[in-house]
């Protein structure tokens, strides 16, 4: 098991390195420097600025200096918010995005998991069709449509919930979390239904039933572990999707999280901010994929036996 974890960690290193390198050179390949837009900057000032941001060095030296900073955990300064570092922007945005993502994931796992399991227990009945049609709607309804529709209905027509903000008014966290979580609830429902259906048809489940265990114990003790494997494996990719979804949700609900910073940086062409955030988010995604692989391997008895040999 440790060898598997260590091996996967070693695989993640080149991926993160490729991400950093590709992002760095892509951003540097962008036409126009960051200070070209400002009109009438005195050449001396421009030179001083460029020295401060190390733009006067040859490209490869800039790259190695950037790598050196990164190793020390320094993501660099922001071009657009003078005097603020990307570390500070990430520190202020990350807790918000993490909280939003955590609620969304919780909604996805609880609602999606429950409806998937219920559907698998009575396949091809109403108990299966209703949640699965809901899941189909969830998959086909993009976040950026669901968000405005919820705002229109619950925020404006019914006036039940606040339409923007995060942690300012009670209840303002509900709609963003549902908007972000809905699509993942749908995927989790489909995956857990498929996983449970497969597991419940296995011999060991028949054995568990034959030895007289009550149905709920068969499902929870014996079924869940195997049936939820696809869901666990999906969590890694889902995490990446949740981050991208947070771009949209934070824009719609005006939430001061990482996603909104990123979209704003993309609009303002704040290159260091884009570079820093991309490196940060990518590393997070790679690490989360790794984690979900490890948990999936740990939950899978066959794989675990194979690994500990």
């Amino acid at each position: 098991m440790w060898r598997f974890i260590f091996g996967r960690l070693l695989q993640a290193v080149p991926v993160i390195f490729i991400v950093i390198t590709a992002t760095f050179f892509l951003v540097r390949a962008a036409p126009g420097g960051p200070f070209d837009a400002e009109k009438a900057v005195i050449p001396e000032v421009k030179a001083a600025l460029e020295r401060q941001y190390r733009l006067d060095l040859p490209l490869h030296e800039q790259y190695f200096a950037y790598l050196g900073d990164l190793v020390q955990g320094d993501l660099g300064p922001s071009f657009k918010y003078p005097g603020r570092s990307i570390n500070e922007l990430i520190e202020s945005g990350l807790p918000v995005t993490a909280e939003l993502g955590a609620y969304a994931l919780l909604i996805a796992l609880i609602i999606g998991g429950l409806s998937g399991i219920l559907a698998a227990l009575r396949p091809n009945t109403l108990q299966d069709y209703i949640p699965m049609s809901m899941a189909m709607i969830g998959i086909c309804m993009p976040t950026f449509l669901l968000g405005p529709l919820l705002v229109l209905f619950f925020g404006i027509e019914l006036d039940w919930l606040p339409v923007s903000g995060w942690g300012d008014i009670p209840g303002d966290k509900i709609m963003p979390s549902i908007t972000l979580g809905a699509a993942y609830a749908a995927y989790v429902a489909r995956l857990s239904r498929a996983g449970m259906l497969e597991v419940l048809s296995q011999d060991y489940i028949r054995t568990a039933r034959a030895k007289g265990l009550p149905e709920w114990q068969v499902v929870i003790k014996h079924g869940l572990r195997g049936g939820m494997l696809p869901v666990v494996a999906f969590l890694g990719p889902a995490f990446a999707g949740l981050l991208a979804g947070s771009f949209v949700v934070e824009t719609i609900f005006q939430i001061p999280g990482l996603g909104r910073f990123y979209v704003q940086a993309a609009f303002n062409r704040d290159y260091t901010m884009i570079l820093g955030t991309t490196v940060f988010l990518s590393t997070l995604i790679v690490l989360f994929n790794l984690l979900s692989d490890i948990v999936a391997a740990w939950l899978n008895p066959r794989l675990r036996a194979q690994l500990s040999e």
């Binding site: 991400v19 390949a29 990446a240 981050l243 991208a244």
Partner: peptide
Amino acid sequence: ILYALPFMIFIVLLMVV
């Protein structure tokens, strides 16, 4: 390796650059 790359973010980056 490409599978592990966060592509959504890369496409945003490409569109910006």
